[in-house]
Amino acid sequence: MPYPNPRIIVLADRIALWMRQMSRLLDQLPADQALNAVSRVLHPDDSLLVGFTSLVETGARIAREQAERGELPPEVCLALGRAANELHSIGLDLDEHKDTLARAGAPAGAAKGRPASPAPLVARRHR
């Protein structure tokens, strides 16, 4: 087995650090700015979520190849495949709300239309 590429390890560590930093910074932002950042991170077309989903899908494909050669337990391959499927489903769930998130994160005064009214938080999941 070849030695791990140190650049990819450093990159993975930096990305994880940046994500933790971003999460902490979101708590300090005004709501409109935080929503703007969240809508960019979770946008289903081109975002961090899309990149992460692609990364997990690639990992699942590699794990499958390794499992087929007997170099990795099949449970790992299946777990990565399920994770990739779940991330894809999350992207589909968010897709129907991308415009709403973008409007909610727009600068004050830029949003048009009727203001949102308070609503009880109820799980409404439909696929």
Results as ranks from 00 to 15, higher is better:
residue 4 P to Y: 00
residue 48 L to C: 10
residue 32 D to C: 03
residue 124 R to N: 13
residue 109 G to L: 06
residue 109 G to A: 05
residue 81 G to F: 00
residue 72 L to N: 01
residue 66 Q to F: 13
residue 41 V to Y: 15
residue 92 L to A: 11
residue 53 T to W: 08
residue 21 Q to V: 10
residue 36 N to H: 12
residue 63 A to H: 07
residue 32 D to H: 01
residue 16 A to W: 01
residue 77 C to W: 11
residue 102 A to H: 12
residue 1 M to N: 04
residue 23 S to Q: 12
residue 75 E to H: 01
residue 69 R to L: 12
residue 121 L to V: 11
residue 39 S to T: 05
residue 85 N to E: 09
residue 50 V to Y: 10
residue 33 Q to W: 00
residue 106 A to V: 09
residue 47 S to I: 14
residue 6 P to N: 05
residue 85 N to R: 04
residue 12 A to K: 06
residue 77 C to K: 03
residue 74 P to T: 12
residue 114 R to V: 10
residue 80 L to A: 02
residue 111 A to K: 13
residue 72 L to C: 04
residue 123 A to F: 12
residue 18 W to L: 06
residue 83 A to L: 10
residue 100 T to S: 15
residue 77 C to R: 02
residue 32 D to W: 00
residue 107 P to C: 07
residue 104 A to T: 09
residue 87 L to H: 01
residue 53 T to I: 06
residue 55 L to F: 07
residue 33 Q to N: 10
residue 15 I to N: 06
residue 10 V to T: 03
residue 103 R to T: 05
residue 111 A to R: 13
residue 93 D to V: 05
residue 68 E to C: 02
residue 63 A to C: 01
residue 124 R to I: 12
residue 87 L to F: 11
residue 90 I to N: 04
residue 36 N to A: 15
residue 42 L to M: 11
residue 127 R to D: 11
residue 35 L to H: 08
residue 93 D to T: 03
residue 65 E to C: 11
residue 77 C to L: 00
residue 61 R to S: 11
residue 82 R to Y: 00
residue 43 H to Q: 08
residue 63 A to S: 06
residue 102 A to C: 08
residue 14 R to W: 14
residue 123 A to G: 11
residue 38 V to G: 06
residue 24 R to H: 12
residue 95 D to E: 12
residue 21 Q to D: 06
residue 72 L to F: 13
residue 51 G to N: 13
residue 90 I to V: 05
residue 1 M to L: 08
residue 76 V to C: 02
residue 73 P to K: 14
residue 41 V to W: 15
residue 60 A to Y: 02
residue 67 A to P: 01
residue 34 A to K: 00
residue 11 L to K: 08
residue 14 R to A: 03
residue 121 L to Q: 14
residue 26 L to M: 07
residue 7 R to Q: 10
residue 89 S to A: 11
residue 49 L to P: 03
residue 92 L to G: 08
residue 98 K to C: 09
residue 70 G to T: 09
residue 103 R to V: 13
residue 77 C to A: 09
residue 67 A to T: 02
residue 116 A to Y: 15
residue 66 Q to G: 01
residue 51 G to E: 06
residue 1 M to F: 14
residue 37 A to F: 06
residue 109 G to N: 06
residue 125 R to N: 07
residue 77 C to M: 11
residue 94 L to K: 05
residue 72 L to V: 04
residue 34 A to C: 09
residue 76 V to Y: 04
residue 56 V to Q: 09
residue 57 E to G: 00
residue 72 L to H: 02
residue 59 G to L: 11
residue 42 L to Q: 00
residue 96 E to A: 15
residue 90 I to C: 04
residue 71 E to V: 00
residue 119 A to H: 14
residue 117 S to C: 07
residue 6 P to D: 00
residue 43 H to L: 02
